[in-house]
Structure formats: structure tokens, C-alpha cells
Design a protein around this nucleic acid. Structure first.
Lengths: 170, 170
DNA sequence: TTTTCCATGTAACTCGTTACATGATTTC
DNA sequence: GAAATCATGTAACGAGTTACATGGAAAA
């Protein structure tokens, strides 16, 4: 549903950027909510430029460095951004949990091993939750993303405790 | 991480099946936790047969119907299944929410529209939660999967209410 | 007799990733 | 002089999907 285009347009809307900086920002600051990779970003930037959603221009640098290929969003791109944003916000689609099929097969293991594995899982989860809680307050709406992550980690923790308790009861 | 192979092996472990029935079961009963498609299933079955994880045999049918291509798991396949299951259970990896980048850009909309869109989102979410709560008790460990889904839908609902409240406060 | 269900597959395509390739500049 | 960082890309591959293709049997 073009989440990646939405992300790139949203970033370019705030500030004109070149590919390298865009990638750097995504890797460093946005890793929690996206996994967009460098070649994909370059590919999408070219594609969006062809579609007229963004424009390229060269920015000459000081110190004899080669010019950077900068991107700016166009009016058409802004309109696409708004449409994508609305579409993405208005409908909820449930995430899939890749471990769910495995979980349904947990009865294939003896209960001691199942318990050990799930405890390990719980530990990783708790560690991740601690990490997220330690993240400093984020400016603006990005705080929602952190809160989102924390809410689901807490739900996951309660649920795994429930699963462990149920298995123990068998 | 070979979740799909794990799923197919897990099903074949319980009962020998042919491709059609496997697909039917996945589509009808397992749609909540997987989106494995028919051509993918046939492809994986062939691949796993080549690797010796499963074996094929023809089952002649009554009524002059053509024989069905049945699959059964091998000892090697059982061992792969166990390994994949353990690997998948022991580590937790956080799900990504495709709407998160969009959410971080919610300030690009005026607050009335943002509120309207998020309310629509909330309604879809609440409907999905009702559906899940109406699912009858499931036998065995599959109940965990339903409980998992419900736990996360509830977390999502609380969080979206929080987001709406915050936006209103601006 | 026409539609639906059972049953099996293939071909082409899309999307995204990994790994590779290049070169200039700045820092150690 | 070597290593890291800035900066931009491409080629090959892999996984999975859509759409297509086929044919027999049962039900309407």
C-alpha cells in the first residue's frame, strides 16, 4: 500500500534531502517503525521522480566536493502524500505474528522444554520493553510511535505469561 | 526464517494430506495467523520433498477419480520441524506496524480531519475485536493464537484512544 | 447442461534484498 | 598512509503473488 513512498514523501516534505542523508536518517532514527533499505530508497526516489512526485536538483558543495543529488517534493507529490496518509490512517489492518503458527504447535514439545523456550522468549521481550521505556521523550507525533510499541510489548508480555501459566497447568 | 515450511510440516505431522486439502485448511481455518498462498504451498511441498523432509505417494480414490498426490513427513522432516519450532519459539521479534510512519505524519492534517480518520480507524478495530471475541473456544493450543490476537487488539484500542485524546488536547 | 467443487499446477511479474562497485574526502 | 565517512549507484538473486491453464466429478 505504498508505505515506503509515504515515508519518503513525508520526510522530503519536511526538508529537502539527498539519498545518503535520507538513508542515514531512516537507519538511525526510524529503525523502530521501518526497515527500508538503501537500494530500495534509491529505486523509489528515481521512480517517484519519474512520476513527478519529487524533483531533483544538484547542490554544489563547498570544498571542491562533488555536488549532491537533492530531492524536493512537488505539488503533485504533496497531494499524493495527503492521499496516502489518509488511506493509511483510516483503516486498521491487523498485524500478523510470525510466531503464531509455531505457537499452535507448542504441544509437539514436552512441557519442560516448552517452558524453557517460552521463558527465553519472555526474557527477550522484557529486555526490549526496558529498552523502549528508556527511550527519552520524543518531540511531536513520533512519541505516538514509541507509545504504540510499548503498548504492544506490554500486551505481549501479559499474554506470554498467560500462555506459560496455561502450559504449566496441563 | 522458514515459518511457512514450519507450518506445512506441522500440519503434515498431524495428518498426511494432499496439496488441495492443505490449502483449503490454511485458507479456511488458519487465515488469522498466516497468508500462505496456493502456489507457494505447492512450491514449498516440492522443495521439501526434494530435501527429503516429506515424501509423496499416490492415493487411489474410489469412483474412478484420479489419484491424489499425498504427502507424509519423514524422520528428517520431523527433526527439521523440531529445530524450526524451537528456534521460532525461543526468540521474540517485535512486529512492525505498517501504519506507524503514517502516524508520525498525522500533524500534516488539520486536527478535525485527523480526528475523523482515527475515529474511522478505531471503529474498524473495535469491529475486529468483536469478531475475535465471538470466535468460539478453540481446541488445544490454537486458543493461544486467538488470545494473542485479542490481547493485541485490546492494546491497540487503548492506544488509539490515547492518541485521539492527545490530538484533541493540542 | 451448466455451474460448482475437487485437484494440480505453471509463467510472468513485482518487490525487495544482498552483495558488489566506485571514488572522493576527512580523520587518525 | 590507512581507515572511516560521505555519496551514489548496479547486478543478481530470491521469495512470493497474480493470473492463467487444465480437466474430471458432482450437484443444481
Amino acid at each position: 500500500m505504498a508505505e515506503r513512498e509515504l515515508l519518503l514523501l513525508g520526510l522530503l516534505r519536511r526538508e529537502n534531502m539527498h539519498g545518503y542523508k535520507l538513508n542515514e536518517f531512516i537507519e538511525n532514527d526510524l529503525a523502530i517503525c521501518t526497515d527500508l533499505k538503501k537500494p530500495t530508497a534509491y529505486f523509489l526516489l528515481d521512480k517517484m521522480a519519474k512520476q513527478g512526485w519529487i524533483e531533483q536538483y544538484d547542490e554544489t558543495q563547498s570544498g571542491g566536493r562533488p555536488p549532491r543529488r537533492m530531492f524536493r517534493i512537488t505539488a503533485a507529490g504533496e497531494s499524493v502524500f495527503q492521499d496516502l496518509l489518509r488511506a493509511r490512517l483510516k483503516t486498521f489492518d491487523p498485524a500478523r505474528f510470525t510466531a503464531d503458527p509455531a505457537l499452535a504447535f507448542v504441544d509437539a514439545l514436552d512441557s519442560a522444554e516448552a517452558h524453557a523456550l517460552l521463558s527465553q522468549r519472555r526474557a527477550g521481550l522484557a529486555a526490549e520493553l526496558d529498552t523502549m521505556r528508556a527511550v527519552p521523550e520524543h518531540p511531536g507525533t513520533f512519541g505516538f510511535v514509541i507509545a504504540h510499541r510499548i503498548a504492544h510489548l506490554e500486551a505481549e508480555l501479559r499474554w506470554i505469561d498467560d500462555v506459560i501459566a496455561h502450559l504449566r497447568a496441563l
